[in-house]
Write a protein that binds this DNA or RNA. Structure first.
Ligand SMILES: NC(=O)c1ccc[n+]([C@@H]2O[C@H](COP(=O)([O-])OP(=O)(O)OC[C@H]3O[C@@H](n4cnc5c(N)ncnc54)[C@H](O)[C@@H]3O)[C@@H](O)[C@H]2O)c1
Ligand SMILES: NC(=O)c1ccc[n+]([C@@H]2O[C@H](COP(=O)([O-])OP(=O)(O)OC[C@H]3O[C@@H](n4cnc5c(N)ncnc54)[C@H](O)[C@@H]3O)[C@@H](O)[C@H]2O)c1
Lengths: 213, 213
DNA sequence: GCAAAGGTGTGAAATTTTCCACAATTCATT
DNA sequence: AATGAATTGTGGAAAATTTCACACCTTTGC
């Protein structure tokens, strides 16, 4: 249990999504084989990924969809409420604040921040926009855990510093830049420009595509 | 040279971004040490990543910023024009079509598609919206290489199939689902909900954070 | 022109991650 | 109750990736 591959965590998220879809279809049982096929990995991989956290199936029988789903939610910490805030209410920040699927799990958008006087105080998608100076207090009062960083690249590090100082625990970084934070804060990049460039590379290097059964 | 780690490609994108920033600051020379620090990896890693593709530095002296930048652009295929299309002109599709930084490299948005009669024929951010039935012809006529998939999860596989049938070479998949495409088409997921769930996991498991010098 | 300092490129070791074979267990059928 | 088919959990092999040490080159200072 000392160390778990990052890729395993990404795959657990995928398995959970598949289980949710199976549950919505009323399917009660599944197998590593079925999960593997839908997640496009090997069945060995599915079982190994789960084995990092315990035993969730029955030999010979497979997995029970609701049970495994509940376990994965617990493992990923999705069985508890998370309060999030958006920093940077430009185009992307607004699009995200409008996005309904948040509450699917227990994420709730609790506050929006910007440093532009023109938007501070306005209401966007039902949320009042705070100035950056209110960040420490609002984060504390509303118990905000996670920040969505949707400011321009040039402002990203400063805004991240402010989030860290306010005591935030995790950051979803949409800005195309590597930000520097203390060890105890977890940053997940969500970088579509980087993805676009990787697509470019793999198109001109078709030989380097990973194999798949 | 037979196989290059996926992570290496992601890091090359980061190095390129750093080099661009250094060039904008008028800095002419750099080192694996400096790139490593800004990219938050080890200097060994930087040199090994570059070594997959050739020798770009001078021993004892380091790297010349414009030279290495040019080489990385070439390696990543960013020294040529790419034509892209957006499939799904909802909130996210519109936000992206508005985004100016595309043309920074040679990506140009050539067409937008949707299957909703209410938006087909409209102009959004200066682009006419086509129906999905026009996809094969438009992709061919405009030489579209890459598709941004911004349709709802439930429509993602069908839309991806249509893109593949039209002869697209790469897909940036913004929908929170694993899509199935033939080997020769490269898909990059851009999945902020997955990122959010990973943040959740790492917040409740602070011991599992990767080390860094 | 020599020595010292700085810094790349790379083969090999170490580590991490994936792959696999198979023992163990369950379920269905007779 | 016994047999056969199905499917998990896991130790260890294999493969992939990262880390490292160091030979080798360049520049600077004296
Ligand atoms: N628009 C897109 O489609 C898109 C897609 C992916 C990623 N991104 C990235 O997301 C980020 C935001 O993009 P955008 O298009 O929404 O930009 P935008 O310019 O529309 O919005 C940025 C917002 O951040 C605010 N801001 C600037 N500095 C700030 C600071 N120091 N503190 C707080 N707020 C600050 C601005 O007032 C503005 O409201 C950029 O880094 C961009 O690269 C954008
Ligand atoms: N809105 C966000 O902030 C956000 C952020 C990240 C990811 N996403 C993901 O991006 C996708 C789109 O999100 P959105 O919020 O823009 O949704 P949306 O409902 O606003 O837009 C979806 C668009 O796709 C079109 N569409 C539906 N089926 C189609 C089909 N078969 N072919 C072509 N077009 C079709 C619809 O007409 C609509 O215009 C979703 O998968 C969502 O999960 C959204």
């Amino acid at each position: 249990m000392s160390t778990i591959p990052t890729a395993t965590i990404s795959r657990l998220v995928t398995y959970l999504r598949i289980l949710t879809s199976l549950e919505n279809q009323g399917i009660k049982n599944t197998s590593s084989e079925q999960l593997a096929e839908e997640a496009q990995v090997s069945a060995f991989q599915v079982r190994k990924d789960l084995a990092y956290f315990g035993r969730f199936g029955t030999r010979g029988a497979g997995y029970t969809v609701p049970t495994l789903r509940r376990e994965l939610r617990r493992i990923l910490g999705l069985n508890r409420p998370w309060n999030v805030a958006i920093i940077g209410m430009g185009r992307l920040g607004q699009a995200i604040s409008d996005y309904p699927h948040f509450e699917q799990y227990d994420f709730s958008l609790k506050a929006c921040f910007d440093n532009n006087a023109k938007v501070i105080g306005q209401t966007m998608s039902g949320h009042q926009v705070y100035g950056m100076d209110a960040l420490p207090q609002v984060v504390k009062e509303k118990g905000i855990d996670i920040g969505f960083l949707t400011v321009p690249q040039a402002a990203a590090q400063a805004a991240a510093d402010a989030l860290v100082a306010a005591g935030i625990k995790g950051i979803l970084n949409f800005a195309p830049v590597v930000i520097n934070v203390p060890r105890e804060v977890h940053v997940e990049p969500v970088d579509f420009l980087a993805g676009l460039k990787r697509v470019s590379f793999y198109i001109i290097n078709p030989g380097l595509k990973e194999e798949l059964a």
